[in-house]
Nucleic acid binder design. Structure first.
Lengths: 350, 350
DNA sequence: CTGAAAGCGCTAACAG
DNA sequence: CTGTTAGCGCTTTCAG
């Protein structure tokens, strides 16, 4: 074997350089560096040393091609520049970084369009070993396609019944929030909600409202549909919706906003009308956004970063157990994220 | 040549399947599908058709290995779950999606640690064709290493003098904000700022404050260092800092917050102290965060999503012009993002 | 425990 | 305009 001269450090060294410099075969280098068994400790140490000296790292493209795995995953989100999604991505990113996986972010254009979800998945096909769908609704047909493609999938926010998922109990969230208001003595409770994007499969607002309805029913109160306003999950939407509610002659003494951001809008709306929070209006949100802390907003906290992290971990675990010949058959296991009531100053007795 | 039988649609078809099905060589398929010249129109059409039928798409790993390019870029950010960074990423993502580039997100742990930046770059080495460093300070040594590595780089927020960058004129931003306050008649102006992370190379707060200082100097006023408080660019930090300023016997009649989020904290602080905005205190921020709109916060708007998009476009353009044998030598061209004063209700005459 | 050799699926000369 | 033929740099049997 002809010794390949080691390249200057600023050039890319290949496995061959390492092999010849260490006086072993490329196969051994490959094994040694990946921590595979059947490598003499002395050999492994030497190889690692040489690799470090040469600043060698396996070319991902080559190793992907040869191994059939990419050590990369994708998070598919409707958008990234929103509090919720960017936090989920942050959680996933941290886990990936830890395990040396690449993280691609992809936005699924309009999740209303069936084709787009599949198109996104197709385009990600061989570039990643698996994907996390965050609040992207997968229909049974989609799941079927994904299964045929033999892809690693984890969902956040939806239960496909097939893939692992991390979710929160949205009905319970609604109930927690409203029970808190009821306990304080509120009877006329308004809700800042939103239209379900895909009512059949994916109705976060509907579930939270359902929880609210049940809590009220338990207290012998009927939820007045007139007191449910659309806030679109945005600050501005929440502002407008709250304004509408507060302009009513029989305005509510408390408002349950399905998200903190809508609650912020409500805070401003109250101020606009000269109403004090909590003096004239109690307000409770969901999320525990940073601003909620400063604002003193009572809220039902969810641990969003953790959702992303748990999803990523589930996916990576699954990938780890994978062989080229297929995924281990695992039914969708579900991790339900914790939620807790965080009482601050925005709620009190009416 | 033996005709390879077309695989069932749910299996991965290779370029060979397409070639034999279309009755041409793999080279022709490759050319046709990538829109290269020297392919008869009829041939191209046929190949495209067959490829579509077989649901074929080139394996990225294989094509990366063969071509030496990955059609992927990375955005390196200090964190993704903050308003600013998630918006930059959103802009970059949109451009990448448009051009069929993969987008990896990587967080550069503590940008205070020199090694980390290089380590991040190294680890991204062959996985991407280029990277966008967002508010990650690159020292001359780092730049040197990156140049040796022959990597496509674009920066957001810093001018390396070597790579294209997109920035905003932070001195001007400070000046715009304070001129506005001065024009209204304010004389005692407080500032919610922050410590520079890397004073020598990267001092956004320092620059904005410098702009403020100059604007005041032009009006014959000396900036009182006592009126500059640290808000750490967070809502909570802004809250605490504002509280400190407002507790002073000679409290300012106006506050310039270096970011909207700090301004939000100030709004709450004012409310805590029973001070009205703008009645007792004028407030101006920077960014034009969604919440600023609802809150009616006067601010100096910057177009953050666009920053990410422009950076990505600059990078992709540069990559497009690239050959395997090296980057075209281009000195750092600079795109300066627009900023404009957005007057809302939080500022008025003292 | 280690080496040789056969690809992984594609791109890029180089001939025709 | 099209086909042939080397690789790209690694992983993975299969022998030793």
């Amino acid at each position: 074997m002809v010794a390949t001269s080691p390249p200057p450090t600023f050039e890319r060294s290949t496995i061959e350089h390492v092999a010849s410099a260490a006086g072993v075969s490329v196969a051994t280098v490959s094994r040694a560096l990946r921590g595979l068994p059947n490598v003499a400790t002395a050999t492994r140490v030497r190889v690692e040393e040489v690799a470090r000296e040469l600043n060698y790292r396996a070319d991902p493209a080559a190793s992907r091609l040869a191994a059939g795995r990419s050590r990369a995953i994708a998070v598919v989100v409707p958008m990234i520049n929103s509090w919720y999604f960017s936090n989920v991505v942050a959680g996933a990113e941290a886990v990936c970084a830890e395990d040396g996986y690449d993280l691609l972010v992809a936005t699924a254009p309009h999740s209303t369009s069936r084709d787009d979800v599949i198109a996104t998945a197709e385009s990600l096909q061989r570039r990643v070993d698996g994907m996390i769908f965050v609040e992207v609704s997968l229909q049974p047909e989609d799941v079927e396609v994904l299964q045929r493609r033999n892809l690693g999938v984890v969902t956040v926010g939806q239960d496909t019944g097939v893939y692992p998922s991390v979710r929160i109990d949205n009905v319970e969230i609604g109930a927690i929030a409203v029970r808190h208001l009821l306990a304080l003595g509120h009877r006329r409770i308004g809700i800042l909600g939103a239209q379900a994007e895909d009512p059949a499969w994916f109705d976060v607002p509907g579930q939270r409202i359902e929880g609210a309805r049940r809590a009220m029913a338990d207290a012998g109160i009927v939820l007045d549909p007139e007191l449910v306003a659309e806030g679109e999950f945005t600050v501005e939407g929440g502002h407008d919706a709250a304004l509408a509610l507060l302009h009513r002659p029989d305005r509510p003494t408390a408002i349950f906003a399905l998200s903190d951001e809508m609650a912020f809008g409500a805070v401003v709306a109250a101020r606009d009308l000269g109403l004090g929070v909590p003096d004239d209006l109690s307000l409770i949100g969901v999320d525990d956004h940073e601003v909620a802390q400063v604002l003193g907003l009572t809220t039902v906290r969810q641990h969003v970063v953790e959702h992303g992290a748990v999803a990523a971990r589930a996916l990576l675990r699954r990938l780890g157990a994978t062989r080229r010949d297929g995924w281990p058959i695992t039914n969708g296991t579900i991790a339900v994220g914790a939620t807790e009531l965080k009482i601050r100053g925005s709620t009190r007795v009416p």
